[in-house]
Structures are given as C-alpha cells and as structure tokens.
Design a binder for these strands. Sequence first.
DNA 1: AGGCTCGATGTTATCGATAACATAACATGA
DNA 2: TCATGTTATGTTATCGATAACATCGAGCCT
Lengths: 340, 340
Amino acid sequence: MTKAITMKDVAERAGVSPMTVSRAFKEDASVNAETRRNILKAADELGYVFDSTASNLRSQKTGFVAVTIPSLNNSNFADTVTAISDDLAEHGLQPLLGYTNYCVEREEALIEQFLRRKPEAIVVTGGQHTHRGRQLLEKARIPVIEMWDQPQAPVAYSVGFSNARAMHDLTDRLVRLGHHELGFIGGGPQSDTRAQDRRNGFIRAVSGHGLDASRLIDTTSTNFSIKEAHRAFQELRSRFPEVKTVICASDLYAFGVLSACQRAGIKVPNDLSIAGFGAFEIAPFTCPTLTTVDAKPSEIGQKTADLIAALLAGEAAQEVPINHETRYELLIRESTSGCV
Amino acid sequence: MTKAITMKDVAERAGVSPMTVSRAFKEDASVNAETRRNILKAADELGYVFDSTASNLRSQKTGFVAVTIPSLNNSNFADTVTAISDDLAEHGLQPLLGYTNYCVEREEALIEQFLRRKPEAIVVTGGQHTHRGRQLLEKARIPVIEMWDQPQAPVAYSVGFSNARAMHDLTDRLVRLGHHELGFIGGGPQSDTRAQDRRNGFIRAVSGHGLDASRLIDTTSTNFSIKEAHRAFQELRSRFPEVKTVICASDLYAFGVLSACQRAGIKVPNDLSIAGFGAFEIAPFTCPTLTTVDAKPSEIGQKTADLIAALLAGEAAQEVPINHETRYELLIRESTSGCV
DNA sequence: AGGCTCGATGTTATCGATAACATAACATGA
DNA sequence: TCATGTTATGTTATCGATAACATCGAGCCT
C-alpha cells in the first residue's frame, strides 16, 4: 500500500502551507480566489481525497446526526428519514441511520454504538427506552430528540404527536358517524409502543361514549405485516362476530383486513367498515379507499432537522421550545360507512 | 464545556497505562480478565465514552461501509439495506446510508461525500454513474460493489441480476401462456435505469415472438408512484385500446393499474391481465393477487455483505469471484389469465 | 540450567487536519 | 502621518487512540 496523499502533499505542489490548503477546502474561509484555484487543481492532479477522520478528531466535529428508527421497511419512517436527511444536508450534516426492529434493547445497543462516533445530535423514535438507554441519552452532551411521540417524560426535546390522541380522535369521529360496534387490531403488549398508544386512544374514545371497548385483538409480531392482519381478522370474526367496524393500528393491517374481506365476500363498508393509521401510499387507491390518519411523517422529519439545525447554530436555548407538536389529519374515506 | 474524559483518565483511575485501557476495549486483545474488569468499571464510573474518531484516524479504519440506494421509500431497496445492515453488524461494520433519488449527479455527490469519510468499502446501486462518479469509484482504494444489476462494464465487483433478462423471462412466460397484445408501463428515458432495462427486456421478448413491441408508455417521474400509474394507464387505454395485458416496471404501477381497473369496472384478468415487478408485500394480497417477479432483495443484500466481509478479511483476491449473480423468481398469479 | 515461547503490560511516536495565534501587506480614514 | 482594519497566509501544538516495538515474568521443553 502506497502512502496516502495528504494536505501536506497538496500544499507542496501548490507552493503554500498545509493550513492554506485546509482553508481552501472550506467554503467560507478567506483564501485568495486564485490561490484556491491552484490548490484545488493540485489536489485534483494528485487525486487527493479530503480526510474527514482527521478533521473530525481535531475539530471535534463529525457532522453526524445519529438517527434510530424502528424499521427501514415502513414508509412512514422512511418518509421521515428522507425529510431529515434532505434537510440536514443543507446544513452539511450527515445522518447516521440505524433501526431497532421495534426492540428497546437493540435501541440501547445502537445508541451506545452511535455515541462512540461522536454525533452532534441524536434522534430516536418514541419515548420508550431501556433504563441504560435513557441514561446514555441523558449523559450524552448533545441535543437529544425523541420523535413520533409526545413522551410524558421527554429526555430533552420532542417532535411529534400523541398517537393515543390521534387514534382517539379518529375513533371518536367514527362513533359520531354512527359506528357503535367497534373492534381494534394491533397494539398488544408485545407490539410497537406507538401501536399500544393508539390502542389506548381507541379504548378511551370508545369507553368515553359508553360503548364496549373490549374487542381487542393483539398482534404478536412487532412489525406490521399483512399476514398478521389476516390472522388477527380471523380471530376477530370468531371472537367478536358482532363487530361492524374494525380499526387497525396501521394501514398495512387495514389493507390486510380489506383484502381478507374481498376474499370472503364481505362488502366494505356495507357489511364492515375498516380504518387504518398512517396514510400509506396505497390508502387512497384501494377499492374502497381507506379511512386513515395522516401523521405527516415528512413534517416530523423536517421539524426535527430544523430543530437540530437551530440547536447546533447555538440558538439561545431558552428560545427553542422543548416540545414540538406536529399535526395529523383524519382522512375519512370510503372504507367507513356514513361519510357524509 | 468541561474537558472530555479520555482513556488517559480511565487509565489513571484503574492504575494502568492508556494502552492497556485501549486493549481492554477490544474484544480480542490479550488483557488479564481482572484487569479488564477493573478498567471497564473505572470507565463506567467516569462515564467514559469510547471515541471512535481518534481510533479511526490512528488505526486508519472506520468500520464504515458506504451504501447508496436510489430511494429509501422503496421496499425492495429497504429490504436489501436491512439485510446488508444486519449482516455487516456481525462483522462490526456500520453502513453509511444515502439515497440518490434516482439521479446520477446526486449519486456522484454522495460518493464524493462518502469517500471523505474513509469507508472500508462502497456499495452503489446499479452500473450507471456520471463520468466523474465512476472515476471516483475506480480511484477509491477500497472494494467497490455495484448491486441490483449486472453491469456490462463493472467497476469492480457486482451482486445482482439482469433486470432485462428477468423481465424478458416474465414476458416470455406470459406470451407462452397466450398473451399476445401486450403493453408496457414504465422505463422511459427519464426514468430509473433498472426500469429502462426491464422495458428493454420486455421489448426483446415480445419482438422475439414476432409480436408488436411498440406499445410502451413512458413514465415521467423517476420514482415509482401509484398516481403516475393512473396517468400512464389512461394513456395506454387511449393510445392502445387493443392491449389485453399490461406489464409494469414496478408492482406499485401494477397496483395503480389494478385499482384503476377496479374503479372503471374492468375485470382483471378477464378483460385485462396485469403483471408487475418486485414482489412487494401487497402483491399476494391484492384482489386478484398480482403476477410479479421476486428479485429477492434480501439475498442481494446478504451476498453483498458477505462479499464485503470476505474482501476485508483479505481473502485472496483471486478466490473471490468478481460477479455474483442472484436469483429471481417468476410469480405467476391471478392477475394474469391462463395461469394453469 | 539454559533457552525459548507466550501472556500481560508499558513506552513512544504517529495518524492528518486544524484551532489558536502570529504575521505581513496593503487599504482607509481622521 | 499614523493608528486601525482587513485580507491572506504561515507556525505550532494538539485532538485521543493505538501501531509498533520493548519489557518482564512465568511456564515448559530438552
């Protein structure tokens, strides 16, 4: 292995000091335009590649922002990450992405691993962590942001909405539209915490109207899958045949229920109404179109990135709000009857 | 800002030299078991966090593997990245993920940005790059892997399949099943190169049977979207009303066409057959189920990661094959008639 | 007993960029 | 005219871990 080409080599070739080369590679540093041109030319001729690892160490800045999400394979989180990524790029920051598989232990491991890389901020999904995971976040001397949730006891900053409230609102709306025999799929004790929150919101809304809120079907895998929805729907039909409206913790479940209905000749929404959560891309294109809640994942990502940028720009801490509530929107569509 | 806690601090507290602390943090280094325990305890009490940036610089190893994909929002690529990520983790490697938005210029920028971080290998999607992008890859002194394709002129290693051949096979199969008036949606000049390849495969297969291969509808956005499919399907119906079988460059398009048919009262597969590409999660659950091609994204990811691991383990270069062809599987389902 | 291997630890120099400070040249205004 | 900026550049020390080499004692073989 031949020796690596460094700034020193470039400096020699361009007839300047290494420091000037260093400056030439920073957009905003004061270097004579022609000198810079010479330096960049020399660098190019030598095939020099800037070495961040050295820069990171000396400047104590890595430009990394650690981001953990439950799964890459969920279009909601993918949208959020895409927005974060785009937005951070404008500030010269690079996301360091990892997924937890909906598992707090994996989250803890990821957080630890990421913190070693000295990110300038860390974003996690939701407010649930292992004890040690939380400690790590608290002791990290960088901005910590919990997104996609409104934790009761946030570590530091939060950007998101109350999943419980959003599902409460959807359920409430449906009850007012005349839905009285409701069942819920998803959010069992083993599942994603956001799904659990949604289920709690459902229960609260249904009991709030004095209706039966006990028709709950657990899902056993943490990840949302259509297959799981089929199983759950079968269970629902055998245990609670009276249910006229199924609300699901995710659009993917709702799609699974819808497809099971189509197979079984159950007319939606005439025989059964279905609602989901998440406003996945397919929701407005299924037949019937799917009632759901749009949690505006991109907005969450954007606000998260903006918050990070503001914090890193050293904005006076007291001027930056701790909690950023994001909007969500009920989308009442054809899959639920009574949409006037 | 108080001073950071370093290995030196830990060393003092544990009564050893910094070097021994360094060793204690490496799994395989030779350190007395009790000494290590003491060191880790001291580190814990001080709240020490290992600093990769320094380690990276000195050891000239970052543990990063740069990975660029066209989009995060595509479940095929998400599956691949998930597999890569899982597999690399076992070797202590961390993916550095970025997406190009199906744009080679963005890819070039990403490659350049990533190379500065001194990854130990770089994975890109497909064989199409800007001139400079390719040069950067060639001059990087690390393993380069192009995945999801079989480039004619690979930069170095490749892991994937021929999109053209896969689509050729699907089309050929459908023709043999009696489909003779075929149209294709996707893969216009502005679109994803894999979609272009698939279209070429379609054309080759159709002309190979002496049939009309000119019923092609371009899509204008690079990203696959259901909305785009609706537009394209409308164009297809007005320009080529005789088409009895629509093959799409992506399952998402196929789903869009299917939903448009359901709206318009067109019976699938009786009036029209539909096939997609990608074996998305919804494909076996739509009604009718969707004919498609499973490109086994996880397998691509796994093989890519295995290849990287082998190369970094210093496996004799001549023992590692340059090109790794991955399997794909035709899934003939209900959406295409004649599936006997 | 002498020589040798091996495990456990210490010492020193270094990875490559840049923060912090210093300097030189030249312009600007009272 | 000189004080005071301003711009462009150089010098030195440093970020924090670890590669490379050195040391030392214990066990083992002949």
